[in-house]
Amino acid sequence: MGSFLYPPPHQQVPLTQVLTSTISLSHSLTLISPQPQPMLLPPLPTTINIGSYFSYLMKCDTYRAWKSQFLDVLAIHDIQHVIVGDACPPTPFLSNDTTNPAHSHWLRTERLVLTWIKSTVSPSIVQNLLLPCTTAVEAWIILDHHLNPLSGVHLRSTHDRLRNLRKATTQSMTYYLIDAKSVFDSLSAVGFPIPESDFVEYIVDGLSPEYQGFITTLYLRPSTTFDELFDLLVQEERLQ
């Protein structure tokens, strides 16, 4: 039967030294073990003023062009997710109850986009539609609801503009007719045209009382196109 061989007494390592070495090794392994890496978030766009991307401020009749350009700008900065898709911000806190840096980053990005929206539309749109908005998503939805040519609200508003045409005394006839034609064309462009005869009647109804004699003569004609009415009214203005 074999026996265990022990090192001679002068070669034996004291127990305290073994324990100290073990603790030291454990501490060293802890120090070199991989640590959790902080969450890497994309930097916010450095371009605060994006006016250089737009040649003019958006008005009611230029919404579609503005929307297309604005989406391009968001795509350039890779932040279109703020207003398209689900647009759902990250949770404010992580599972360990610490503040979620992604949530804070989302809020700053979202507020930057809201600033971009308000700075690229006309002051009247900001005043009438966007003043109460506190988020980019809210502003985006309101603009689309009121200014998208295909929305029911916009179509009704455009029809109301035609029915309520009025030539101001300080307004030239040419300007009055061109403005009316732009409203008429906007309905045709989105697939909701109105008969030209109705359009002509809206224009005539918006004339001031000094054109009453002209209107009476006009109604003696069997029909009048817009182009014919344009020439007749511009000539009549010169006779006033």
Rank of each mutant, 00 (worst) to 15 (best):
G51Q: 07
T91I: 07
T98R: 05
L57D: 06
P89R: 09
R64L: 15
H77F: 15
F54W: 10
P89E: 03
G85P: 09
Q69N: 13
D86E: 14
L114P: 01
E110N: 02
V73W: 13
S52V: 14
S68Q: 13
N96G: 04
I48K: 10
W66Y: 09
G51P: 08
I83P: 04
S68L: 14
R64Y: 03
N49K: 10
D86I: 12
L71C: 14
G85H: 02
D61P: 06
T115C: 12
T91E: 06
G51C: 08
H103W: 12
I48C: 07
V113C: 00
A102G: 02
Y63P: 00
I117A: 05
P92A: 00
K59V: 15
T99S: 07
N49P: 03
T109P: 00
H105T: 02
P90G: 07
L94W: 08
K67W: 03
P92L: 00
R108G: 00
C88G: 00
H105R: 09
L57I: 05
I117R: 01
I79C: 15
A75L: 07
H77L: 05
G85W: 05
V84A: 01
K59L: 09
L74H: 09
Q69M: 12
I48S: 11
R111I: 03
L71A: 09
S52K: 08
T62M: 06
L57S: 09
I48V: 15
A65G: 03
W66M: 01
N96M: 06
N100S: 02
R111W: 00
V82A: 02
D97G: 06
T99I: 15
L112Q: 11
S52L: 13
A87D: 08
C88H: 14
A65Y: 10
T98E: 13
F54L: 06
D61H: 15
T99F: 11
D72V: 15
L114N: 02
L57W: 07
I48R: 10
S68G: 08
T99E: 08
D97Q: 11
H105D: 01
P90W: 14
T109H: 03
I117G: 03
Y53W: 12
I117L: 12
I117D: 04
L112N: 00
P101L: 02
D78E: 15
E110I: 03
A75Q: 14
K118D: 01
D72L: 15
W66L: 01
F70G: 01
H103K: 04
D72N: 13
S52F: 12
M58T: 04
T99K: 13
P89F: 11
